[in-house]
Amino acid sequence: MRVEIWSDIACPWCYIGKARFEKGLAAFAHRDDVEVVHRSFELDPNRAKGDTGPVLEMLAKKYGRTLDEARGMEEHVAANARSEGLEYRTEGRDHGNTFDIHRLLHLARERGRQNELLDLAYRANFAEERSVFDDETLVVLGVEAGLDEAEVRAVLADPTAYAEAVRSDEREAAELGANGVPFFVLDRRFGISGGQPAELFTQALEQAWSSRVLQPVAVTASGAGDVPVCDVDGNCEV
């Protein structure tokens, strides 16, 4: 069974949702028969490369809040992350264009190192004092994930490398009705939107496993109440 996850490295609920999904997967009896593929979704695709800025100032401007209020929003997300055993810095982080990261994730998928690179990128962005929006940091992360340095540099130097793969993922997300991330599609039968509890992921995996007749993908969050997502306009619910 294949699980496809649309996400963006800039999305805190994708960071949290990945951890929750993995806990749900660990409790699934057929977990060794599940292939997980990470797909591209940019929350801010029109942001220019190199246009980076502090997260707190971005949040304050986007939501019309004070810096203290933005800091409170971040603390709320941080509490959710820490409840899943994830580190989360509420200050000192940058926000920027994630297109190059997505391109490298496609390279990493071809080399069998996609999950490793994604975990490192999430950690660098949310838990460490490393900006993921400059090429040298991405080179370091790629090498740490097990990729060849020369190959990583070649992809970053060529803006067309894996560009269509990223755009294809984004078009497919739109066709499936995804208007926010994280967005999970299980075996092209069921869709789940948002950073759901681990137990719901286990239940969904069991349902998808037992239902082997192809059905249209339907986004569902039944029984989970309001679930935090980052939407297509880059708004992340807290």
Score class of each variant (00 low, 15 high):
D68C: 07
P45A: 13
A79I: 01
V229F: 00
F21E: 03
T98R: 02
H102F: 06
P45I: 12
E74Q: 15
I101P: 00
T160A: 15
G24R: 00
S211D: 15
I9E: 04
N97S: 13
E172S: 13
R103F: 05
A208T: 07
L186I: 15
L43Q: 05
L107S: 09
E4A: 14
V55G: 04
L105Q: 10
V152Q: 09
D226L: 08
E172P: 05
L138V: 08
G142K: 06
L205A: 01
E170T: 05
D94C: 04
D100M: 08
V77Q: 02
L200K: 06
G85W: 01
E110N: 11
D32F: 00
E136D: 14
A157L: 05
D94G: 07
R171D: 15
A81M: 01
Q203I: 09
S83N: 11
N179A: 10
V181E: 02
R103H: 06
R103W: 07
R188W: 11
T52Y: 03
L117N: 05
A60Y: 12
A224W: 00
F41S: 10
L186C: 04
E75Q: 11
N235G: 07
A29V: 11
T66G: 14
E172I: 07
H30I: 02
K49D: 12
K23N: 02
A29N: 05
L56N: 13
N235C: 07
L25S: 01
D148M: 03
V132D: 03
A121M: 06
V132A: 06
E69L: 10
A124W: 02
Q203E: 15
R71V: 02
Y162C: 09
R31D: 12
G112K: 06
L105V: 03
C230F: 00
S83W: 00
D32T: 07
L56F: 01
Y88C: 05
A60R: 11
A10Y: 00
F126T: 10
M58T: 14
L118T: 01
D187I: 04
L200R: 07
I5N: 08
K18G: 01
F190H: 06
S168Q: 15
D51F: 03
E87S: 11
Q215D: 12
